[in-house]
Every structure is written in C-alpha cells, then in structure tokens.
C-alpha cells in the first residue's frame, strides 16, 4: 500500500495554487476571482502544515495556518464589500467591464 507522505501534500498544495491562479486569470466574475484567491491562501496553509508535520516538527507551521485562515477571512470581508459596491455602480460584477480608468 502506498503511504501518503510529504510529496503528496506538496503536490496537492501546488495543484491548489495552480488552480487558484488559473481561476484568477481566466474568470471574469468578481466573486469567482475571490474564490481563486482563497485557493492560493489554502495552498500556502496546506504547505505550512505539511512541512510542520513531516520535516520541521514544531507547531509553528500550524499556527501560521491559523493566521492565514484569519487573514483570508479579513481580506474576503473587505473584497466582497468592494465587489458589492462595484455591483451598485456598474450593474454587474464582471471584472473586465470595470475599466473606466485607463491611459
């Protein structure tokens, strides 16, 4: 039987990071972009926990993961409020239609 090790967690983290980045680049919906952002942060949190368990062996990585969760919540709260305001001004949350400021 295959044992799950550090490599698997790192691969999963990398996959989450790539999916998150792809969503941020491809998706036009403002809320979907924020979802992609959550994936980026979760990928980092997963890495911290995996390293903390398999190589480093202290609790620091797990504490960092909790900090990341907290910051993700704070960021999401502010960003969603901004998206709501975008909806009121632009009657939609398609991020590429929000482009009145340009050279």
């Amino acid at each position: 039987m295959m044992t799950i090790g550090l490599t698997h967690y790192l691969l999963l983290g990398g996959l989450l990071f790539s999916i998150g980045m792809a969503i941020i680049i491809i998706k036009r919906n403002g809320v979907a972009v924020l979802m992609g952002l959550e994936l980026l942060l979760n990928a980092a949190a997963l890495n911290f926990i995996a390293f903390s368990h398999y190589t480093v062996g202290d609790v620091r990585g797990q504490v960092v993961a909790i900090f990341i969760i907290m910051l993700a919540a704070a960021e999401a709260a502010v960003a969603l409020a901004i998206v709501l305001n975008i909806f009121q001004h632009f009657k939609g949350i398609e991020v590429d239609e929000v482009s009145t400021l340009r050279d």
Partner: peptide, 17 residues
Amino acid sequence: TESALKYAIYGSVAGGV
C-alpha cells in the same frame, strides 16, 4: 470603487503568492 477593486484584487493575489 473601480480603483479599490483593482487594488484589493492585486494586493490579495500578491499576498497569496
């Protein structure tokens, strides 16, 4: 509003990366 959206998304993505 528009600039805040751009700022927040860029900032959060940069922070996440």
